[in-house]
Design a protein around this nucleic acid. Structure first.
Lengths: 203, 203
DNA sequence: TGTATTCAATACAGAACTGTATCCTACTCC
DNA sequence: GGAGTAGGATACAGTTCTGTATTGAATACA
């Protein structure tokens, strides 16, 4: 009674993967259930046998993505915290490594955010995820500042919020104008200055 | 032969207005032509008599929005540049005043950006608009730094890019978590620090 | 006042999409 | 190797949307 599910969970995974791609290309509303199935190599029969509706799939996709993100963070945090290197390297490292395909991730993430801005329920889920992410990042920042003789003049969480804002805003610009703003340019120019502005050698 | 168009241009305007609202609520793909017409108080007959398709309307809406934005900037720039006040007040003032309805503007703007990230033609149009906006903002920054005994340690345009990144990233956070991040909090906490970090009294 | 024109409403045809019901195939387990 | 079942394909019905063709009312103009 256990093994027969191997096939099932596999097609679920493939459907989720296909959905990720198609959503990135056409957006949630723009992608039909059939588009997703086609991409995954199935027909709608498989879809409705695994998900109740597109909304349910979106939710599952969000959950899966969140789970993977948090797993990655768990794996990366101790490494980054213990390795030598500047605070910024660690922070940017985490931000970058958790988004292997920058472009796709940004598209999906923006799509989710937009969706959440219109739907309170989605907003709650997204905020929960973002809060966990911020927390991890905040912990990382605190650990590194403690061990590196650096002290922040603002609460670590607020610093993290700022880093995230810059990161997102910058990435949006670099994806829109890849020629004028190569990926990472803005972050690497400004975050060091920001950091300098809000930190000092600890007592 | 000229006056008969008065009615026409009026319904065009109402359709555009309706589209703005509906797009903000449901997104481009999520809004049907009929939704837009209904909001504007027409039926699809009026729509297809004024626009060839939803895509054409989106383009027209983008153009109209851009035109209005640039007009507003033209009107605000001299005022802001001449008025007493800090550089930041002026910059944030411009950013805020050009977006009377923060939420709707952000939604539409995000939707456009997302669309542009998927469609090179839209990207070009959006980038042109953003370039003009940045230019105005850059001019404002340069004017104010010149007259206020302040000097930037980075090119004005890059500073402007950074301000925009922060502004967008911050607004996204404050719209998602209005309780935890009241509008303007992040900007007003961090931008002064950033500014301090990248400026010094001029020679 | 009568005629022409403009512009939006209405009616309609066709396409796309969703969701369900049924069928078919390939395992599983005896 | 044969019955039972899981899971995906196929066929179908219903809905929604788009775009066009036609109609009708209001306005301009003579």
């Amino acid at each position: 009674m256990e093994p027969p599910k191997r096939r099932r969970s596999n097609t679920r995974a493939r459907l989720l993967e296909g959905a990720l791609e198609v959503f990135a290309e056409r957006g949630f509303h723009g992608a039909s259930v059939e588009d997703i199935c086609e991409r995954a190599g199935f027909t709608r029969g498989a879809f409705y046998s695994n998900f109740g509706s597109k909304d349910e799939l979106v939710l599952a996709l969000f959950q899966a993505t969140t789970d993977r993100l948090l797993e990655q963070i768990e794996a990366l945090l101790p490494e980054l915290a213990s390795q030598p290197g500047t605070l910024l390297d660690a922070v940017l490292g985490l931000l970058d490594e958790t988004a292997p395909d920058q472009r796709q991730w940004h598209l999906i993430s923006a799509e989710f955010t937009l969706h959440a801005l219109r739907d309170p329920e989605a907003a709650e889920a997204l905020n929960k995820q973002r809060a966990m992410f911020r927390e991890s990042l905040t912990r990382l920042v605190e650990q590194i500042t403690e061990t590196s003789g650096l002290e922040l003049t603002v609460p670590a969480e607020q610093f993290v919020r700022m880093v995230i804002a810059v990161h997102e805003g910058a990435r949006s610009q670099s994806l829109l104008e890849p020629d004028d703003v190569p990926a990472g340019t803005l972050e690497h120019t400004f975050l060091p200055m920001v950091l300098e502005a809000v930190s000092r050698p600890s007592r």
